[in-house]
Computed example of a mutant assay.
Amino acid sequence: MKIISMIPARYGASRFPGKLMKDLNGKSVILRTYEATMATQLFDDVYVVTDSDIIYDEIVKNGGKAIMSLKEHDCGSDRIAEAVENMDIDVVINVQGDEPFTDKESLEKLIKVFKEDDNKEVDLASLMVHINDDDEINNPNTVKVIIDKFDFALYFSRSPIPYPRDKSIDVKYYKHKGVYAFRKQAILDFYRLPMLTLEASEKLEQLRYLEYGKRIKMVETNVQGIEIDTLEDLERARKAWK
């Protein structure tokens, strides 16, 4: 089984433009993420795929591998699909460019899903973290996921799901970490299918998979990490890196 990692990297992030080139204790955020992914030694290849000459040059000049997107893309999955279309691979893992604390243990869990899926029932796998802080549960920037008894995703939302109408019920809330592992065919299917209303409403690309009947196996991890979406996140990352 040939497994690679792709790190989609857009320079003009809407909430924090240029965040991937911000300094994180001596190196850019995107370079830190690339190096952390390489350091896991789990992949046959690791690439940054980008629409930005600045990010492309940052990776290449530091000895990494980068691919320039040929088309404009609305989401990271589309960017990856274009890049892998003609590659001879089985599984591609999408590591977010703003997650420099990417860890080996969590990625190993995703890879294990596919190595144990002899009947190829899983289209993609992704990570989730148990959360219990009310501010985080209600924060629309924190994407929540609910799962069935077999750990397949039922829905993703920026709202708190499930809604706690009966507060006596001990409900576990899970934060979705935007790290995905795809079978190659699943991501190519995603690329060719039009966006539907749930994805458009929530602005969550993973909903496209659910709307078209794909199965997403969720894997719990205890590693929170720090996703750099704001300047405050960057400051937290700088402190954590020390």
Rank of each mutant, 00 (worst) to 15 (best):
I4G: 02
P8W: 03
P8S: 05
A9P: 04
R10K: 14
G12H: 12
R15F: 15
P17H: 08
M21D: 00
D23N: 15
G26A: 12
K27I: 02
K27A: 14
L31W: 09
R32A: 15
Y34K: 01
M38L: 14
A39W: 03
A39L: 06
A39M: 08
L42H: 07
L42A: 04
F43I: 00
F43M: 02
D44T: 07
D44P: 07
D45M: 07
Y47M: 02
Y47L: 01
T50I: 02
T50S: 09
D57P: 01
V60Y: 07
G64H: 12
A66D: 06
S69T: 14
H73G: 04
C75A: 08
C75G: 12
C75F: 12
G76E: 09
S77H: 13
R79D: 05
A83G: 08
E85G: 04
E85K: 14
M87A: 10
D90Y: 10
N94Q: 12
P100S: 11
F101D: 06
F101K: 06
K104F: 08
K109P: 00
L110A: 02
F114T: 02
F114G: 09
D117N: 13
V122Q: 06
L124W: 02
A125Q: 02
A125S: 14
A125D: 00
L127C: 05
L127T: 01
H130N: 11
H130K: 14
D134S: 13
E136F: 13
N138Q: 13
N138T: 06
N138A: 12
N138D: 07
P140F: 04
T142S: 13
T142A: 13
V143I: 15
V143C: 06
K144N: 03
V145D: 01
D148E: 10
D148Q: 11
K149C: 09
D151E: 15
D151W: 14
F152G: 05
Y155Q: 09
R158D: 03
Y163E: 07
R165Q: 11
R165N: 11
S168N: 14
I169A: 10
I169G: 00
K172W: 00
V179M: 01
Y180S: 00
Y180D: 02
A186C: 11
I187R: 02
F190R: 01
P194Y: 10
A200F: 09
E202G: 11
K203I: 09
Q206R: 10
R215T: 11
M218P: 01
M218G: 03
E220P: 05
E220M: 09
T221W: 03
V223L: 15
E227S: 15
E232C: 07
L234T: 03
E235G: 03
R236T: 08
K239I: 14
